[in-house]
């Protein structure tokens, strides 16, 4: 997904002279084509994320589109006040892109786990929060983000994520994309962890359970209509995300359900528990450890439907 983002951005920057890339000494092996092609629209600010974010705000306030790009929490929580006061309060056209959402960098440890980012970023006024799930969504989300005027938080994956979407997709900020149709339950997911939701939904067919499967790529604004339809048309809702259970995608869906009078729908959240992931291991292994794999999704759907 990292590669897909950078390739798409490069193509956009070829046509749009307003695109600047503002880095804090992260991006080796990916950002060089942009840096070489557009040296006057590229800057490596050094390992200084507060200043990177301020510079991006200043560049954007001059009529440009500034991308800050780094891994995990560096362009978000490290410089949260710059994101809030400079970027969001001024509604500056800054796109904050992280590589390695969730526990993509599992083995690197807690400093490199981006597991509270969705909750924190979606709490900021003016901020759009996008969580694409595969390369196809990443490319579409990049185009949508760059066409949108205002701050966007873009939670990108890392590398070698499997494709979730098989068909062409219609990506809209504030929308969602249905991957499978079914009426027994709906499984919403955000991000590459959704591959396990897809495997689970496909495996449940053999047990006579047909689930709707939806990529909820846009956490803010969120697709209220798709959530309400899921509550009314299917037998329950499971939300899968690679994020702390506090305030993430499941929380955002629950807010919609309560606000829209759908509070009685059977509902399960599959997320990381409210702790720091001190277990050491790969992303896939950690997902399994915390019940975010195929088996965890199948068990959640069945328990919710009383079919276990």
């Amino acid at each position: 997904m990292r590669k897909a983002f950078n390739q798409e951005l490069l193509q956009i920057a070829e046509k749009d002279p307003r695109v600047f890339m503002i880095l804090a000494d992260i991006g080796y092996g990916e950002i060089e084509p942009f840096a070489n092609r557009f040296p006057d629209r590229f800057i490596n600010c050094g390992v200084a994320e507060q200043e990177m974010t301020g510079v991006a705000c200043g560049v954007a306030m001059e009529g440009n589109i500034a991308i800050t790009y780094s891994i995990a929490n560096f362009p978000t929580i490290r410089c949260l006040e710059q994101v809030r006061n400079d970027v969001c309060y001024h509604n500056a056209n800054v796109k904050i892109v992280i590589i390695g959402g969730g526990v993509s960098y599992g083995e690197l440890g807690v400093s490199h786990h981006s597991t509270e980012d969705i909750a924190i970023m979606r709490a900021l006024p003016n901020m759009v929060v996008l969580v694409p799930c595969d390369c196809k969504e990443t490319r579409a989300a990049t185009r949508a983000m760059m066409a949108y005027e205002g701050p966007v938080y873009f939670r990108c994956g890392y590398k070698n994520e499997p494709d979730i979407h098989e068909e062409d997709i219609d990506f809209r900020i504030g929308g969602s994309i249905q991957v499978r149709e079914g009426h027994d339950a709906t499984v919403f997911f955000a991000g590459p962890v959704g591959i396990h939701a897809k495997e689970a939904v496909d495996a449940l067919v053999a047990e006579g359970i047909r689930c709707r499967l939806v990529s909820l790529h846009s956490i803010k604004p969120i697709d209220k209509e798709a959530i309400v339809r899921a509550a009314r048309e299917t037998g329950g809702i499971v939300v899968l995300e690679e994020h702390n259970i506090c305030g993430g995608v499941g929380g955002a869906v629950a807010e919609v359900l309560m606000d829209e009078g759908c509070g009685n729908v059977p509902f399960r959240r599959l997320a990381l528990p409210d702790l720091y992931v001190t277990k050491v291991g790969s992303q896939g292994w950690l997902q399994e450890q915390y019940g975010l794999g195929k088996a965890g999704v199948m068990a959640a759907v069945k328990s919710m439907l009383g079919r276990s």
């Binding site: 990177m52 974010t53 301020g54 200043g58 306030m61």
Partner: peptide, 8 residues
């Protein structure tokens, strides 16, 4: 930092 961005 923002002034730097404007200068750039």
């Amino acid at each position: 930092p923002v002034a730097c961005g404007m200068a750039m």
